[in-house]
Design a protein around this nucleic acid. Sequence first.
DNA 1: CCAATAATTGAACATTGTTCATTTTATGCT
DNA 2: AGCATAAAATGAACAATGTTCAATTATTGG
Lengths: 209, 209
Amino acid sequence: MNNVQLLVKVMKQDEKRSLLKQNVFDAAYKRIEQDGLVGLRARDIAKDAGCSLGSLYNAYQDLDDLILNVNSRVLEMLKETISSNMEDEENAEAALVRLAVNYMNFAYENYNLWSSVFGHTMQDNAAIPDWYTEQTNATFLAVISPLLKLRPELDEAEAFILVRTLFSAVHGIITINLQERFISIPKDMLQIQLIEFVQTYAKGLQIKV
Amino acid sequence: MNNVQLLVKVMKQDEKRSLLKQNVFDAAYKRIEQDGLVGLRARDIAKDAGCSLGSLYNAYQDLDDLILNVNSRVLEMLKETISSNMEDEENAEAALVRLAVNYMNFAYENYNLWSSVFGHTMQDNAAIPDWYTEQTNATFLAVISPLLKLRPELDEAEAFILVRTLFSAVHGIITINLQERFISIPKDMLQIQLIEFVQTYAKGLQIKV
DNA sequence: CCAATAATTGAACATTGTTCATTTTATGCT
DNA sequence: AGCATAAAATGAACAATGTTCAATTATTGG
């Protein structure tokens, strides 16, 4: 058997393995998307993925591992969605507003997935793996990068903290409004609130400077 | 047996029942305080409370019921702590800042309890009972009432939304910073950020008006 | 075609929350 | 005091769930 044939065989093996991983991943993703983290069961995932319960643990270390992989994908989507339509924006305040609205839309349209990212806690208080926290930070950096470009006069560390604060604030406003235990306002009203909030904050910043 | 004797007997019964409830409550409270919601087990609570596993379900409908009762207590504490030192404050901006800082301190000093309030989700997506959502709203109203007094010129609904937005933002800033998956800054730096944030927002409001 | 290796399986285990028949305790009446 | 009734407490048993692993099946290389 020559090298090419060997490669094909190896690829087949890998493809099979990754096909299993893919199927398990897809099943978990869909379950989380539809029922949220609360409704996630290993046996359901295995059934949906068309494999045995044991194979699930062959593909992923445990449910936490699988969930983090799904969340990782959601972070990518979040990054993509949230930073879209940002290239042509040259006004810093308008950019902030657009970021906030994009974020809100993502949270509304992917509520369960979004909740999974921010609501998941590791079993037995296990540590979150480094690759995941790194991706979280990378996502955040990518999102704020258009803003750093818009305000090159700011010290980068300063700008980072600034945008992080604003991001956290926007996150809080959306989170509280979407949580069942608090009174909620309709999406269009929230959007108005959010825009007003970001504009108000931006105006406050201008005074300061 | 006369009425007084009857009353005593009845009271003894009730006291016993409420003593059990109290013991179970205290045990759950301490467990959540020390290990968070993740480490909460029915058997541990029963052992700590000095009763059998079954008795736990005699005192409370289920774990959700027990947790909500603990969270209810935490909400009371939160209200107490957060709205302390507010009576003598006559400057609206300073009052907002103080609210935020009080909130931050509470979150830091009672992290697991605070997380329990905002991180708990009902089993099987059961509905949150009315008494709990009502208390949540009442707590929120009580917290913002000093502000409504300070700005009587504002329409009450307007002021409510305004403060709610600010509260949510502050909540988000603190939450994101305290979550393990994000880069955190030390408490004193967070406090500076928070104060700056509230002041900036307040300044933005003044421009607008 | 066979031996060796890898992957798959699902039964079994451990840990949970929850229930309920049984036992224990308390109560009220004579 | 003693007894009958009611209330409360108990923990064994059940169901659901994440996880493991010995046994089985499939794949690979010669």
